[in-house]
Design a protein around this nucleic acid. Structure first.
Lengths: 128, 128
DNA sequence: TCATATTGTATGCTGTATACGTACACAGTA
DNA sequence: TACTGTGTACGTATACAGCATACAATATGA
């Protein structure tokens, strides 16, 4: 469970957990049938309260990634990706992309290297 | 002042303003010597309280983009981009990139179109 | 069968931060 | 000097994140 959270970030911990796990789910590193660690276990690993982890699990369950049951835990299930209205998703994606790019530019990361990272990820996506 | 905010977003309004303005600053759409609108004016345009806009201006001033003075308002100044430790910026950038990509994938945006957006932005960066 | 351990859930508390209301301070200008 | 237009300061209400604690459900083994 390679997952790291930043307690000093303004992004709430439970959402950091959601974001991190969603990457693993989308990439197939967590497949249907797999089980996530119990909330108390992951909470200790991350250094947070188990209710915080539970909240993250519930969020992912609401997105359709998990089925949660007592005593059994959180199981990854097969999920049909929804068909969201694409213009909205596209516009939102573009905007958030520019936001974080502008931020790292402001922090001194050279445009050439940003472009390289973007292309690297693009290739990774098409390879998969 | 093409700037839009989403009151229903979990991202605080003042940070949405900062993010939006930072894009304009990084892209050079706002140049040194330009003036931002008075806080009350922009606040009305966005439908928020002027103190919220003022907080955003102060944040950008702290980043070195603006000089704020009473009666004169917020002026864009020339800014030396800092030299942040690049491994950290790079790792952070990569992670956040994957987070938002995973999110739009989960929302049903096809990988091919994501890759296209990434490449488009990469070219835009190198063109500039 | 039933006790128990292991899992998630529910509820309430506290601290922090966002957004706002209102009063203030400052600086140009008539 | 008075006034107007600008940002600032400070208090308040609210929401929410994170935690503590008690509870509920269920698989397992004696």
């Amino acid at each position: 469970m390679t997952l790291r959270i930043d307690l000093s970030s303004p992004v709430p911990v439970y959402r950091q957990i959601v974001d991190g796990l969603r990457i693993l789910l989308v990439d197939g590193d967590l497949k249907p049938g797999d089980f996530l660690p119990p909330v108390r276990r992951l909470a200790i690993d991350l250094g947070v309260h188990f209710n915080t982890v539970a909240e993250a699990y519930r969020t992912l369950a609401a997105e359709g990634w998990l089925e949660i049951a007592r005593r059994t835990g959180a199981k990854v299930v097969s999920r049909k990706t929804p068909r969201a209205p694409q213009p909205e998703v596209s516009a939102d994606f573009r905007r958030r992309l520019r936001e974080i790019v502008a931020e790292v530019q402001a922090r001194g990361f050279p445009p050439g290297r940003i472009a390289r990272e973007l292309r690297r990820l693009a290739e990774l996506l098409e390879g998969a």
